Simulated assay, not measured.
Amino acid sequence: MFEFKLFAKSVFGIALGGLIFATQANAEQIPGRFMPVIGRASAPIGHVEFCQNYPQQCQYGTKTPLVVRLTKERWQELLNINATINQEVRPFTDEQLFGVAEYWTYPQGAGDCEEYVLEKQRQLAKLGWPKSALLITVVKDLNNGGHAVLSVRTDQGDLILDNQVSSILPWYSTPYRYVKRQSARHAAAWSSISDKRVTTVASIPE
């Protein structure tokens, strides 16, 4: 994993200060660091059912989504949560655990990519991270298969917490094609992502 100073200098080149919040609109004036969101998208069926089972987790809404200033302390929290959950949750498919193709829930020691994401989101929220900065995100992987990661909205850009990659990377440095993500304005809504980067997965057909 990156040392914090090396990460900040080589990837972003910006000195980091204390913890503050900024509006999403202000943050998105920096091109490239933030995923281009272009409008509404349908929610994955797994998330729809998750909201039915955990309605309190899907009631959050705000008119002013926040991003987090990435201090050394906040960066360490991301590293700790990502590493701990990746180590503690054993990888199993929904078919193996629940006998269905898709089922989103909090892990009980095992789960697939969505369980990792949901638990990381929950643990970071417990540490005081704003929910509008912790967004479930659907991508296509190198095999054109569906995969879920957690996008974390910081003043340095969108960072990705992933159960398949131990490092925390800027979204544009991951080997994925980004499809849609949870809305920063309402936990039950989803937004489309316009990922037009020339990447390995961008040439793979839908």
Score class of each variant (00 low, 15 high):
F2M: 02
F2G: 04
F2E: 10
F7D: 11
S10H: 09
S10M: 05
V11M: 13
F12H: 07
G13P: 02
G13N: 03
I14R: 09
A15K: 05
L16I: 14
L19T: 05
T23N: 08
Q24V: 01
N26V: 13
N26S: 14
Q29F: 15
I30S: 15
I30N: 13
I30C: 13
G32K: 02
G32I: 00
S42R: 03
A43H: 08
P44Y: 05
I45T: 07
G46A: 11
F50Y: 08
C51W: 10
C51I: 00
Q52N: 09
N53A: 15
Q56R: 13
Q56V: 11
Q57H: 09
Q57F: 04
T62F: 12
R69M: 10
R69F: 09
E73M: 10
E73D: 12
E77C: 06
A83G: 07
T84E: 14
I85W: 08
Q87W: 08
E88C: 02
R90C: 04
P91Y: 02
T93V: 00
D94H: 04
Q96T: 05
L97H: 08
L97S: 05
A101W: 10
E102L: 02
T105N: 13
Q108C: 10
G109Q: 07
D112W: 03
C113A: 07
V117F: 09
V117H: 09
L118G: 05
R122H: 09
Q123C: 06
L124Y: 04
L124M: 08
K126I: 01
L127T: 05
P130E: 12
P130T: 03
L134Y: 08
I136P: 02
T137E: 12
V138W: 14
V139M: 11
D141E: 12
D141H: 10
L142Y: 10
G145I: 11
H147A: 14
V149Q: 13
L150F: 05
L150I: 00
R153V: 01
D155T: 00
N163G: 11
S166H: 12
S166F: 03
S166V: 02
S166K: 06
S167C: 02
I168G: 04
L169A: 15
W171Q: 07
S173P: 11
T174E: 14
P175I: 00
P175H: 06
R177T: 03
R177L: 06
Y178G: 03
Y178W: 06
Y178A: 03
K180D: 12
Q182E: 11
Q182P: 01
R185K: 10
R185Q: 11
H186M: 09
A187H: 05
A188V: 03
S191Q: 08
S191L: 10
S192C: 13
I193Q: 03
V198Y: 14
V198G: 15
V198A: 15
T199C: 11
T200V: 13
T200S: 09
A202P: 02
P205H: 02
P205F: 05
